[in-house]
Amino acid sequence: MFLAKSTSYFQTQVPFYIKVLENLIDNKDLDEKGGIDSAIFEAKEVAKGNKQVFSIGKEHYYFVTTLLTRYKDNLLDLEGNSFDEETYSGILEILK
């Protein structure tokens, strides 16, 4: 194909997120709670119209946009910037 490109749509980062969320739910490893909570908070801010889609950061881009498109109603109900096991379990379900 002329000036072709090959783009993979397979979301290779998903297994890593699943591992992190499973650890958070099981209280096994909380090292990444800060990063995950800040990504959920960013998605919540975009969902509530407090932040532009265009300014979503690249560190958790896939995770944030997955929440925006598949978890939006739940995002609108979230409060604060630290989240609990119930939220992580809900997100885990949509990633699996």
């Binding site: 000036l3 072709a4 783009t7 993979s8 980062q13 890593f16 896939y62 995770f63």
Partner: peptide, 16 residues
């Protein structure tokens, strides 16, 4: 004419 860029490993993947 097989010019392409192979994506799939974003910064998000790399950090993970």
């Amino acid at each position: 004419l097989d010019f392409y860029f192979e994506s799939g490993y974003s910064e998000e993947y790399f950090q993970g």
